[in-house]
Amino acid sequence: MIIPAHEFHPGRILAGGTMLYWEFSAQDLARTRFACSPLSEVVTSVEVLKEPGRHAVHLPWVRQARQRLAGVDWELLSQLIRLPTVYVPDFLTPVPTHSTLTIEQAVAALAVTDPVVVRRDLARLDGELPPLVAELRADPEAGLARLAAEVQAYWTAAIAPHWPRIQRLTEGEILRRARQMSTGGPAALFADLHPQVSWERDTLRIAHRTVDVQRRLDGERGLVLAPTVFAWPGVYSQQNPPWQPGLVYPPRGVATLWEASGATVPDGLAKVIGRSRARLLAELDAPASTTELAARTGLSAANVSHHLTALREAGLTARHRTGRTVLYLRTEAAELLLRD
């Protein structure tokens, strides 16, 4: 899709070759927030299933999902997400309006989308529409009912079994970014967010496949940062006026999601604090709970808790409660030890 430099096309567009610039005012920074989007996970996971070779980290999930989706009807959803991904209809990829949104809430909102909006978004798709998408355009109410049912069924089969782990990873990412911003300001918030994203002075730069434009945010909406597991290895921009613009990116630690353990334990550190504690620090590349660390390391939950308490007393880990879950993360002192 070619987008003139004087306008920014609404929607969700895969980043790549040229450059998108978002200029921030102080008010924009003040309104920048995080949110998790179940629909973003659905859409990006469909892309993973369609092109698993580009998403090697998720291959263990792909194998399970294909088995679980046998007999599940998700053809309309599949036809709406075409490869190569240039534009996904806005009504299927809304920028989250709340920091926490359940799939049930997202599906309910999807089912009552204004037919005018559906036809407007579908008109932006290039080429001839696939059969079921053409039916959706002809009869949006019936099509949306089918699409909502497909999204729910797809979610139940392919994502729901893994949602607690996915949610802990994204929540841990938000916690980590918030801590970075509290100590280093906006520059630290965007630091190492993604290889295609950089911050300089008051401008966020996003390497983009199809967009080459400089746009000043209006000072009234800021930006929504939406960590999304299945976005890996890409990053996506969103612009759905009048809502806040959004940036969908993979959280740190995605590589640990489907593996029992992939962390390398530094021998020198293990000799000083013990191999189990060194391994736990290595596993905390992204914040994690006691239960998840036990599953990844093979240690008992009680043993993990004992070691984490000792590491916290030594100033090497910190803990943060999110809902009913307590997440542990490495401190700066631990990061320094692991780097050295």
Rank of each mutant, 00 (worst) to 15 (best):
W61V: 04
R63L: 13
R68D: 10
R68K: 09
G71Y: 05
W74G: 15
L76D: 09
L77S: 13
L80D: 13
Y87V: 01
F91V: 13
T93P: 08
T93K: 06
V95Y: 12
P96G: 07
H98L: 06
H98D: 11
S99Y: 10
S99G: 12
T100G: 09
A108E: 08
V112H: 01
D114N: 05
P115I: 10
P115C: 11
P115V: 14
V117K: 13
V117P: 07
V118L: 00
A123W: 15
R124H: 13
L125N: 07
D126N: 14
D126Q: 15
L129H: 13
P130M: 03
P130H: 00
L132H: 09
D139L: 11
P140Y: 08
G143E: 14
L144G: 10
A145K: 13
R146Y: 03
R146V: 15
V151H: 02
A153N: 03
A153L: 00
A157F: 01
P161K: 05
P164H: 07
R165W: 06
G172P: 12
I174H: 08
L175W: 09
A178Q: 11
S182P: 10
G185D: 03
P186S: 02
A187W: 02
L189E: 05
L189G: 06
L189K: 07
L193M: 14
P195Y: 02
P195A: 04
S198C: 04
E200Q: 12
R201E: 07
D202H: 14
T203M: 05
